[in-house]
Computed example of a mutant assay.
Amino acid sequence: TGKSLREGLPRDFLGYMGTVYADADADADDEDGEGERGGPKLPEGLRQAYDAAKKRAAEGKADGEKDGDEEEEDEAENPPGDDDEEEEERRRRRRLSRLRSTFRSEARDRILRVCRRSLNLLDEGCDQIGKRFLSDRQPPHYTPTEIDSIKEGHPPELKAIWPDTLCRLSRPGVARLCVEGDKAVVYHCGDNAREYRGNPLSPMEFELDDAPALETLITTVEPRWVMVKDLVHEDVEEKMEIAKALYDEGILAVCQTGNR
Rank of each mutant, 00 (worst) to 15 (best):
L5N: 04
G8D: 07
R11L: 12
T19P: 04
A22S: 03
A22R: 04
A24D: 02
A26P: 01
D32Q: 06
D32A: 13
E36P: 15
G38E: 14
G39V: 02
P40W: 05
A57L: 14
A57C: 06
D69R: 01
E71P: 04
E75S: 07
E75I: 05
D84V: 15
E86C: 12
R91F: 03
R98T: 03
L99M: 13
S101C: 07
R104T: 06
R104G: 09
E106N: 10
A107C: 01
R113G: 11
V114A: 14
L122N: 11
C126G: 12
D136Y: 13
T145D: 14
E146H: 08
D148G: 07
I150P: 12
P156Y: 05
P156N: 09
E157C: 14
K159S: 10
I161A: 07
L166N: 11
L166A: 13
P172G: 00
A175Q: 03
D182T: 15
A184R: 00
A184Q: 00
V185W: 04
R197C: 13
P203R: 05
E205T: 08
F206E: 04
D209K: 10
D210I: 03
P212T: 12
P212S: 09
A213M: 15
L214K: 09
T219L: 09
T219D: 08
V228E: 08
V228M: 15
L231S: 03
D235C: 10
E238R: 11
K239S: 15
K239Q: 15
M240T: 05
A243K: 09
A243W: 05
E249I: 01
Q256D: 08
N259G: 06
R260N: 12
